[in-house]
Amino acid sequence: MLELIFFSLLNGVVTGLLLFMLASGLTLIFSMMGVLNFAHASFYMLGAYFAYTISIYLGFWVGLIVAPILVGLLGAVVERYGLRYVHRWGHVAELIFTFGLAFLIEEVVQFIWGKDTKAYHEPEILQFPLFTFFGQNFPAYKAFMLVISIGIFILLLLILTRSRVGLIIQAAIHKPNMTAMLGHNVPLVFMGVFGVGCALAGLAGVIAGPALGTFPGMAFVLGSIVFVIVVVGGLGSLTGAFVASLLIGLLQTFAIALDYSVNDLLQLFNISFDADSALRDLWTLSLPQIAPILPYLLLILILIFRPTGLFGNRET
């Protein structure tokens, strides 16, 4: 049992931090521009595919650096020539635009790279078990993912709190109009933040590609979970995004590890039910089964009862 908890904890943190890399960019974009970028996870996918192609020719490490930059540039272009243009039609159109973009990017990825899973692998030097605990291996690559994610978190925190750019961004998050009046080029800040946010998503894709697979559906799988994190964490709150990411990450791994069902709970109170009734699914529901529902339930409850999110101070 200890073994199970230890490894679930570790895996949960790895997943959570990976989600945070996506969520941090999205929450910055969302709070500054008011646009919930549906295509955010698509940039994550592009990161993985770019890195895959680069890794064929130049190796994994070049891809690790170049792919996020390419994705960031692409993101900036999308903001400058797509989103800013659509802005004139209003918020709903912007939302629909990013939705259409997500759809289009998936099709383009299928067009360029095909529909199958790509053989994008972790580099040779990270293909060894880092340590063995109770006879179970912990792969070095997971540790690498962990280190990168924590590094990014610290870097982001430093930039946002210690640098001038960070101050302007923080100002633009809370009072965009005021910031513009003070003479800062807010559109440029928007473009920059959008680009950097996409680059972060791209980086997440680069390191997640080998672990979670590089295939055209990878954006779709993560897309809505990242929304949940942003909304639950609270608008514009990096801390909130961090906590929510870990929460969702741990929720997903522990739900699989712990095999308890409603029935078990009821049996504690000596209640039993007819196994053939139409509602039988309710009683036999186990934790692994309801795991996929929990994040969305959380999302709806938060939106209804606490629209500011757990750590936010502004409504969505």
Partner: peptide, 25 residues
């Protein structure tokens, strides 16, 4: 606006996920 859109997304995902769990229905 966005809140409505997000709730609809949440409900949509919730129902889609539930549909694989409640096999009887």
């Amino acid at each position: 606006g966005t809140v409505f859109a997000m709730i609809s997304l949440g409900v949509g995902e919730l129902m889609a996920a539930s549909s694989l769990i409640f096999v009887a229905f």
